[in-house]
Write a protein that binds this DNA or RNA. Structure first.
Lengths: 195, 195
DNA sequence: GTCTATAAGACGATAGAC
DNA sequence: GTCTATCGTCTTATAGAC
């Protein structure tokens, strides 16, 4: 990890973000020092300030980048016309996307309270936009009669909490593959909302 | 909040726990200083050490007390013989118990990573015992034919994540009462597992 | 662009007076 | 049982050499 002095900006910036993501997820934003991040990258603490204005901005940028990725990946997914097909696509996409980046997911949820008000409002707005894509599918399904839920907004929160919960126990080396997990959760989601 | 000197042990100990619970939930264990807790209680920082050996023990005790409460309250609930009735009781109990103590619930989940290994193992064992009471209901229901799930352990994690998720958005002043929320979630849980 | 050195202050925890 | 005072260490962030 030791580095020699010189110009490395193109490499150092993403390495700082990776180190911070991993350390924040493992120990929490408040418990991680700039010195720890610098040590992981292989520079001295002062050098970090060539890339980030301060620790708070680093955290907010990591969270914003994660939610931007999520919304972009979601938007790239073709939206099938049949509501139950659209819901299946959402379910599988959500599980897979979140399983692939557990550190970012963990931080985006756990460190909300460490955001200053402006940053908090921005991040929450992005999260809400993602939730709304699921609510839209459920409302559409109610229109066609394929979906029957007491309250689409509550069902949205329930489904997202259920699916994101996979991250609390999923390990690549576990007894179930991600494909199998997707199948099981799609089965539960389908029954949860089907008319 | 100012206090005069003297003997207050019977009052001070629970006040320290309440202050720590509230501050840890709001800002996170690592971000809260002993001086902040002391200020909330109305004593100087040094005085806290008449009641707690150190900050880590304070955190572990709060989490253990919460899970002990949870297991005790669950055990006090009569277990109805019919699996779907037992599941309804579990669903309503879980939502109500968790909605009544959001700070403790938040801490018990968010601060696991700040526990030293011994404390972590203890807390996780308690949590697992609680989860197992739900798995037992589902397995029982599979036996009678009332329940059909692909995997009782996965269904357990899915249901608990879904129900605990209420705490991320529920506010006493919101548009739905806790009774209404219980009804909606019981409807979703029932459909999720019903044969 | 990274280094060393440092400013200015907060941290957990303890000692001894009362 | 709580106070004041303090120890030794750590913190974020900056300044100036190279």
């Amino acid at each position: 990890m030791a580095r020699t002095a010189g110009s490395h900006s193109a490499l150092t910036a993403p390495r700082i973000r990776e180190a911070a993501l991993s350390l924040f997820a493992r120990h929490g934003y408040a418990a991680v020092s700039m010195r720890q991040i610098a040590a992981e990258v292989g520079v001295q603490a002062g050098a970090l300030y060539n890339y980030i204005p301060d620790k708070q901005t680093l955290l907010a940028d990591l969270m914003r980048a994660h939610l931007d990725d999520l919304l972009e990946a979601r938007a790239a997914l073709p939206l099938r016309a049949d509501p139950m097909q659209a819901l299946e696509d959402f379910t599988r996409f959500h599980i897979r996307f979140h399983a692939e980046r557990p550190d970012a997911v963990f931080i985006a949820y756990m460190e909300l309270r460490n955001l200053e008000p402006d940053n908090f409002a921005q991040i929450e707005a992005l999260r809400r936009r993602y939730e709304d894509t699921l609510t839209a599918i459920l409302v559409d399904g109610q229109g066609t009669g394929a979906v029957a839920v007491a309250d689409p907004r509550i069902a949205t929160m329930a489904i997202i909490a259920m699916l994101t919960g996979v991250n609390t126990w999923f390990r690549q080396t576990g007894r179930l593959s991600l494909d199998e997990i997707e199948d099981i959760y799609w089965g539960m989601t389908r029954r949860l909302v089907a008319a």
